[in-house]
Structures are given as C-alpha cells and as structure tokens.
Design a protein around this nucleic acid. Structure first.
Length: 257
DNA sequence: ATGGTAGCCTTGCTA
C-alpha cells in the first residue's frame, strides 16, 4: 500500500488549526510537512494533532517561519537546520527518517524585495540547499525534499509571467538555482503527473487572486531517484484554499508505492 | 484604481 506524503504552508498553525485538522482527517496523509508555523514549539497545538494519530517534529520560531513534520509512523529527526548556516537562526529546515524514508520540510526564503539583502540571503540559502541535497543523493536512498521553495520554476507556473519577471520567485538567479538542484537528479513529483498550465499551489490573499485563479506554483516535492522509482501519483488539493480562514497556500501531495 | 489581505506583534514587518 502506498505512502501519501503532503506539503502545506499553513501561514500560522494556530490561526489555521481547524483547517489543518479537517484536512488531515479527510485526506489522511501518512506524512505531512508544514511551513510557516509562526510560533515557537511550546505554542504549537501539539495535542490536537497528536489526537489525529500523528507523531511530531517541530522547529519553531516566534512570529516568522517555523517548520514541522507530521507522520503516523515514528519520526527519527536527523537535522534541525540546513547545514552550513552556523549563524542562521531562522527556522526553515527539518529532516527526519520515517520508516526508512527520508523526508525534509523546507521553507525557502522568499527573497523580496530583490534589491535588498533578503534576495542575497535567499540565493545563499539555495546554494546551501544544493550542497546538502548533493550529499543526500550520494546516499542513494529514498528521500523527499518537500516544502515552500518560493520559486516558480517556469513561466507556466505563474499566472502573469511578465508581471512577475522581476520578482524574487521568478528571477533568473532563483530559477537557475532551482534547475541546478533538479539537474543533480531530483524529480519534481507534481510535474511527473500534472503537466500543463494552471497547476498552482498559492494564491495571494489580495486582489481576488483565488476566485480569478491568479496563482503560482511554488510548493514542491523533490524526489531522489530511489523515491521517484516508487512514485505513482501526485496532485494539488485545491479544496482547502476555498474554505473560510484559508491559508494562501494549499496542500500538494504525492504517493510512493 | 498605484490599491488590495492576513498574521503577529515591533501599531511595522513579512508574505
């Protein structure tokens, strides 16, 4: 039986708790990685998630960032931060082993505005991610690097490519780093099964983006070759984005045999 | 039409 792995930027786990518990109950992923918890570990609504049958690994941060791994099977945490950032205190990475599968929850920096040091931080973070991803590939094991990458890989992943050409999510420096990562040997799980336009995972809260389907594809599940060999399906679940008090992102999932 | 929304808290910052 297949393992269902999902990623979801929830934009505050405390504000989103009813939406998250409803989706976990209905979609029943075996593993779900979350981003933008926007709270410290002590403030995370642990009991409400554990009551649904999930184990937890939480890397919290007050107000900003924060990542977690939820899994029905036991979680063995391997890393609580992306290697190579000794002076980087932002909670953007957690990696664990779950029943022989390696899974990471990634919250890659947004990088806007590009004329500030935020963009340099994003690019440096992507370089660190590529270096670490290379070491993971060398293990030749089944690994899923899932999360909010804050990168639209190509123009078809953007509702308005011209309008976003200068945005940190679409800039050539961001895209070239994402493609270099893929070219190491990672597979974009969603694109393996869902090609074509209008495959979006995020819609801004502003300007009626959701009803107009003015979306972006920025949440990705990257599979090592050993994981890609087991992939049988992947999709975006748009339903949570249309509900009351929705996150601006919606879950993306894949199945591994 | 140069806006608009959401979350948390620093009534501004991040997205």
């Amino acid at each position: 039986m297949a393992t269902k792995i999902a990623t979801w930027n929830v934009n505050s786990i405390r504000a989103r708790l009813p939406n998250v518990t409803a989706w976990l109950t209905q979609a029943a992923p075996d593993i779900c990685v979350l981003q933008e918890l926007k709270c410290e570990e002590a403030q995370f609504p642990r009991a409400e998630i554990e009551d649904l049958g999930y184990n937890l690994a939480i890397i919290g941060q007050k107000t900003y960032n924060g990542v977690a791994i939820l899994a029905k099977a036991p979680i063995e945490v391997e890393l609580r931060a992306l290697p190579g950032g000794e002076d980087d205190a932002q909670a953007r990475y957690v990696q664990a082993l779950i029943g022989g599968l390696r899974v990471a929850s990634i919250y890659l920096p947004n990088g806007n505005p590009v004329e500030t040091d935020k963009f340099a931080y994003k690019l440096a973070w992507m370089d660190r991610l590529a270096a670490h991803a290379g070491t993971l590939l060398a293990l030749e094991e089944a690994t899923v690097l899932a999360g909010d990458y804050n990168v639209c890989p190509a123009d078809e992943d953007v509702f308005d490519p011209q309008g976003f050409a200068g945005d940190a999510l679409c800039r050539p420096e961001s895209r070239s780093r994402f493609w270099s990562l893929l070219n190491q040997g990672w597979t974009d799980a969603l694109r393996l099964f869902r090609r074509g336009p209008h495959v979006y995972t995020y819609w801004d809260y502003q300007a009626g983006a959701w009803p107009k389907d003015h979306g972006l594809r920025i949440d990705h599940l990257l599979l090592s070759p050993q994981a890609a060999d087991r992939a049988s399906d992947a999709d975006v679940d748009r339903r949570p984005r249309g509900q009351e008090k929705a996150s601006d992102h919606t879950p993306v999932w894949c199945l591994l045999r």
